[in-house]
């Protein structure tokens, strides 16, 4: 009880501190120099119409490389921590229903296609490699739920994940070699608003999409509670 009161007291202080801080940040005002530069130059410099993707992949592409690494780390770390603990986890009691199984048969290919669509059009529409990869992984999640004997081949996942990551770094290094700056946009800009435009943005998003898809699938598979020998 005293502990709870203490916590509430603490929360009031923290809340007061945060509230008094955030209200002094102006809301809805134009303030950023950097943002204006990106908006004005995204089409001219990168050929991408989606300013957010241009920032994510090119202007701040280094962050995205780090972000991909973080997700890779999560998949690796999770697999490392959960390795060999799997046999003790509890098993499914109920079989998946007919609707689930039949529905998955139809939805799985659709999820793969839709995910690929999202990461292929990352430079034109909201979306990109991360959402696309997650949609693909959700297709595999449906498979895990509908057929609990199903297991994605871990070797394949591992190889795809590695190759995609290495390709990303290699694209960056090609930029370093050709233009003298890491992750430089060494492909043509093309016509804005077309599928084949914006230089290396679609290329990187394809790599990210594949990588995120395989990583999230591996992550879900590791978190799944079933064992292979039921």
């Amino acid at each position: 009880m005293i502990r709870k009161l203490f916590v509430l007291f603490l929360l009031v202080i923290v809340g007061f501190f945060l509230a008094s801080v955030v209200v002094s940040v102006p809301f809805g005002a134009e303030k950023t120099i950097v943002g204006r530069y990106y908006l004005n130059n995204t089409i001219g410099e990168t050929g991408g119409v989606n300013a957010v993707t241009s920032i994510v992949v090119l202007y701040r592409g280094f962050d995205t490389l780090g972000e991909v690494t973080v997700l890779f780390l999560a998949a690796t770390g999770l697999a490392a921590i959960l390795a060999n603990t799997r046999e003790r986890r509890k098993k499914h009691k109920e079989k998946p229903s007919l609707i689930m199984r039949v529905g998955t048969d139809y939805l799985f290919p659709a999820a793969i296609v839709f995910g690929s669509y999202i990461f292929l059009h990352g430079h034109l529409t909201p979306g990109g490699g991360f959402p696309g990869g997650v949609v693909i992984a959700s297709g595999f999640l449906m498979l895990f739920l509908a057929q609990w004997h199903y297991k994605a081949d871990e070797l394949w996942l591992k190889v795809v994940e590695s190759l995609a990551g290495m390709t990303y770094v290699l694209i960056g290094l090609i930029g370093l070699w050709k233009l003298g700056t890491f992750l430089g946009n060494f492909l043509g800009k093309g016509t804005p608003n077309m599928l084949l435009s914006a230089g290396i943005i679609p290329l990187i998003y394809i790599v990210i999409g594949i990588k995120v898809g395989s990583e999230m699938t591996g992550l879900l598979q590791n978190l799944r509670e079933t064992t292979e020998n039921e």
């Binding site: 134009e30 943002g35 990106y38 908006l39 300013a51 957010v52 994510v56 701040r60 962050d63 991360f130």
Partner: peptide, 15 residues
């Protein structure tokens, strides 16, 4: 258009 930078940052932060 609004400022695109925070959107890019949040994308990273969410992942």
């Amino acid at each position: 258009a609004v400022d695109p930078v925070p959107q890019a940052l949040v994308l990273t932060a969410i992942v």
